[in-house]
Every structure is written in C-alpha cells, then in structure tokens.
Amino acid sequence: MFAGAPSAGHPGADHGRARRRRARSLRELLTGWAFVGPASVIVLGLSIFPAGWSFLLGLQSWNGFTDPVFVGGANFAEIFSDPDFLGAVEHTALYTVLFVPMSVLAGLFLAVALNRRIRLIGFYRTAIFVPFVASAAATGILSTYLFDPQYGLVNNVLRSLGLPTPGWLQDQSQAMLVIALMSLWGQAAFTTVIYLAALQDVPGELIEAARLDGANRWQTFWRIIWPHLSPVTVFTVIWQTIQAIQLFDLVFTSTRGGPLGATTTIVYYVYQKAFRELQFGAGSAAALVLFALTLLITLGVVVYSRRRGMEAF
C-alpha cells in the first residue's frame, strides 16, 4: 500500500499527521476484520471451541440431562477395557490395511493408464471419475443391493460362472472387504487425479534422456518417474490413512456395524456411545483417541519420509 507517501512535505503538521495515521490504521483494522470476520467467527467457533470442549467432555461423565460429573481418566479406562472399543479399533485397522494400499496403488495405476492420448480417453476418465459424486448413503444402499447374497448382481454373475456365492456383507469375515471395495469405487478418482497432476510435473527431458540411455518403459517408470512421485505418494498415504481411520458413513449406510459388530469402526463406536447410549464422556474419549491416532500416524509418516530423504513436507 502507499503508507506515508501523501503527507510528505508538510512541515509543522506532525500532530495532525499522527492523528491521521492512527485513524487510518484503525480504519484498516476495521476494514480487515470486516472482510475476514464473519467467516473466521463461523470456522473458529465451530472448530476451535468445540475441539477444546471435547477435551473437557472426555474427562466428564455426562448424559446431557443431569449435571456433568468430573471423573478424570475414568472414561479412557472404561473404553480401553471395553471389548467393543477394542474390536472397533481392530476393525478400523483392518479396513485401513485393506483400503489404503488399494487406493494408492489403484490411483497410481489408473493415472499411468489415463495419462496418454488415445481414442476414448475422455470416456475412460469420466467412467472412473464419476463415482466420486456418489454419496455414502447412495453407495451404501447400492452395495447392499449389488452384494446381496441372493438377488445381487455379484452373486448372479458368480452363480452363472459356476463359482461359489459368498455372503459378502452378511458374512462377518467378508463385510469389511466389500466396504473397502465400494470405498475404492467412489474414491479411486481422488488418488488418480492427484497422481495424474504429479505425472505432469515429471520433466519430459528426464524421460527422454533415460530412453536415449537405453532404458525400457518399465525401467524408466521405476527409476525415473516413481522417485519423482514419492512426495505425492507420502501425501496420499497419509491422507488416505486419515480418511480410512475416520470411516463411518459407508458402514452406517450398508451394515450398521454388523454382522455381529464385525464392521463397527472407532467413529461408529463414538456415534453409538454418544448418541445412542448418551454417554457423552465415553464418546468424547473415544474421539480423542482417534484424534491422537491421526496425529501419531501423520507424524510417523512425516518422520519416516524425512529420514528417507523424501522432501514431502
């Protein structure tokens, strides 16, 4: 801006100048906060304030009606001795282990496949990207239909091929796999787009040079392109892991945590504790464990990638 410039060359007006400067900085302060104030109040009011409150709630026993009672770490002791919570942690870990590698590898593969000029490429890209707009509710209902053991398309195809027809979402050992597959259907677009953007940033000269040195496509990819993508890979692994351990919507709309609790995740546990059993304290404690887990995983991957010399963050 043009601070101080206009008032130069007016000797003897020091007092007035100082007052004008004060008035201007007050006006700038008001203008600035008029621009940023409304959005800031909403965003901070709906995040910083509740986040701080949840730390307090985690230390209280409260059902929303009677007065809250301070219980210290009792909520944490309770959830960690609750087999349902430990099961939820286990199911969340299973989903994460299934979903994260699948979504990162699928994204990488699809990006490489889509990163070329061939006929129909627009159709391929649209087909792979369009499930991204499907909501969890729609995806959940759709998966219960597609994977219905009797009437579902998947088992109809398997049956006509003479293959065994599993119970899928109604089978304790398969339900989480189906949820991971349907998540992949909706989310593959995301990692694909990220990798596509990153592939465009690989310098063409490097690839040319490798070719001239006699490297084949396979070698060029793993020796030249893949190392270039590593910051993006670190990022997508972190991002998808954070998404995975927060799984809730799709479970709620497909299995409601069943069969026999086999797909209860940590967030599902939070939902049940807080909003079904009205144990706000225990629910908040479980949410805090999830938050700590998120920070630990992020920190772990960042430290690991620093050690390996990948400048991702």
Partner: peptide, 25 residues
C-alpha cells in the same frame, strides 16, 4: 491489519481437527 497472521494460522490449523472430534460438543 492486526491479528491477520494469527487468524489465518488458526484457521489453517483447524483443517487438522477431524470432524469426529467435533461431533459431540
């Protein structure tokens, strides 16, 4: 204006707070 830097830092920091932590409060 005064408070600009603190404001944007706080706002970016909230991106790290998962929705699930905010559900109950």
């Amino acid at each position: 204006f005064a408070g600009r830097k603190v404001g944007i830092l706080l706002i970016i920091a909230t991106i790290m707070v998962p929705t699930q932590l905010l559900m109950v409060p």
